[in-house]
Design a protein around this nucleic acid. Structure first.
Lengths: 203, 203, 203, 203
DNA sequence: GATGAATGAGTTTTCATTCAT
DNA sequence: GATGAATGAAAACTCATTCAT
């Protein structure tokens, strides 16, 4: 529809990637409005029109970043889906593993995280979607007897997302804790409360 | 005598309050930048210059809203400080009560909440402060033997804040759950996990 | 929908009218694209934002001018509709009168004329409409016996419009001929060809 | 040897012609400003720099089109110059023939026509020139007794141009009438009005 | 206590045009 | 004969803010 998007050469691809990376940082640092195209291109060593060689407008580059974040987050969330027939003893590890992957992704992409989690309009929708996948997993596990019957898994799922979000901001992104440590602590905290009483002692 | 800030007449006070209320809604709905002074005064049935009769500028009215939120939130958080010599059986109720007050305040001031929790630059500082007070309480209680010794109360405090924040967005503000219900569910979820096994009996 | 358009004071109305008048000249002289808002406001002794106090955008002020032209042109064309029962001897005068009015309007509004006739996208539609009203008149008169039966009145109407348009540009606007003189010469030229043979001698 | 304008290869000549043809259509359809170089080269399957291989700039290609139109129109107009000693009975046919040639040219080059007649700055000058040649012819014929003595041939010439212009737009270009039909109808309409009564007999 | 009228200072966006290859 | 990549220069438009009344 427009002339944009059909650049082929490696140089162009590089400029585009550079703009994307810088834009992510600028958006993350200043928010959508205060991130100025002029600042982005300046940091990329380009001029304003060059920006429009690669992106339709400011909104477009922002959405591309949001899209990237969403895609990768969903992939990770999907992977954390539990398989059936899993042994009780593996559940904890499996969950920790999934959470670790997510924390690792977030910690490796701090700007993207800030954009996807706090700045985008879809942030809420994304969180809802992640919560929903999580909820599915939890219900399945609950039915399999891993968790106490009386727990409202919707609340648990939402709480887990809230905790993840918060700890990402306060512990992960500032580098205070590693993805692994964080994941295991969160799981520990939640499991001890969720695991059905009969399971508790033997563990 | 010729600067702003000292209007006294009832009418002026009314206009000011009106602007404040409308601004809160506009900021909450559109964010800082997309909340336009022109829109605020229009909804208030005033003109743009009238705005500057009551507020120094856009930033000032925003900060005033943030300040209001912070002040009231701190008051509530302070009140939830545990007194010494409290009986074990009352801890749970006491915490639930404090959380209920907070949820109630948030639910009664949805726009202010969005501003204070998500829009303001101080949001992070405020959460940190609340977390810190919470942490104090928790450590005190932990030392009093209410909670398991091995728990990292910093993590717990932060998790609690994260959960509160998330559930406020997904359950409280949309009116899906009452402050009371929410508070007791959260406390339940956390206590069951935090309370050391040996403490659990009386409940 | 927008805040614009509810200015009330006389000063504002004056500024608006001034902008309109200057814009007409600028559009007429440079065409739509090369008429710069900056130039318009500068000539009006205003700054750019003032423009947007009175008009939504560049296109809007242009359309307002086009609309004004169209409205007034249609009024004049309507007035030139012949009444039934008119005497043969009066037809010529009546037509001349109508044409005079139109020429007078065009000559008094040269910029508007250039905009309406040549610059606007609706120019063609407007000419078509005027042609159509003219055609109606002519057919009516032809049926009443004023004009030769064999004439294709559609061609005549279109020719009349073409001539009017051309002479407006070459004679009227440069002030070479008066509206009255022009009207009577045009009518003379056309009548002598259109009038049925039987009418010719007696005139 | 290193400047533009002297490409010789067949391929280059082809690209140049293609650009010219496409540009004509684009200018005709969108006007000078809204015809974008980017769109022209895209339709030609070329890139923007290629454009500057063949034309100095946007204005240059436009002027080349205008020039082509003018040249060919003048040729045709010149050819319609009456020779002396022509028989009365042939005048009508001769004029019709000339007009037919012109209408044919216009109808075969609709885009060029729109550019030359309406879009170019020289449009007015060109019309003036054509009018002038026409006027010469008419005066000559009038003096030869073909037309009524009292007629202002300047008015007639201008009227003829106006009619030609208008009918080109409404009848010729849309394909509603053939060049031949149009020419003969126009001549008919004008002759019947211009020819002095006493001359009329032989027709 | 309030308004009509206006503006300073930006910001995004567009487009013709060019450089190096 | 042509392209990938980039830019200079400008234009429309927005919005918080103010002056004079």
């Amino acid at each position: 529809m427009s002339q944009r998007g059909r650049k082929k050469g490696a140089v162009g691809e590089q400029s585009r990637a550079l703009l994307l990376a810088i834009a992510a940082d600028e958006f993350a640092e200043h928010g959508y409005h205060d991130a100025k195209i002029s600042a982005i291109v300046a940091k990329a060593g380009l001029t304003q029109p060059a920006f429009y060689l690669y992106f339709q407008n400011k909104e477009a580059i922002f959405q591309e970043l949001v899209g990237t974040f969403r895609t990768r987050l969903y992939e990770l969330t999907q992977k954390s889906r539990l398989e059936t027939g899993m042994e009780a003893s593996a559940v904890s590890e499996r969950i920790t593993g999934g959470l670790t992957m997510i924390f690792r992704f977030l910690s490796e992409n701090p700007s993207l995280t800030r954009i996807g989690f706090y700045l985008s309009e879809e942030a809420e929708a994304m969180k809802k979607q992640v919560t929903s996948i999580l909820h599915e997993n939890l219900v399945f596990e609950q039915e399999a007897g891993y968790f106490a019957r009386h727990l409202d898994m919707q609340m648990v799922a939402e709480s887990l997302v809230g905790v993840t979000e918060r700890l990402t901001t306060t512990q992960l992104l500032p580098g205070r804790k590693s993805p692994e440590a964080l994941a295991s602590e969160v799981v520990q905290l939640f499991l001890d409360g969720m695991r059905s009483a009969t399971e508790k002692p033997g563990d």
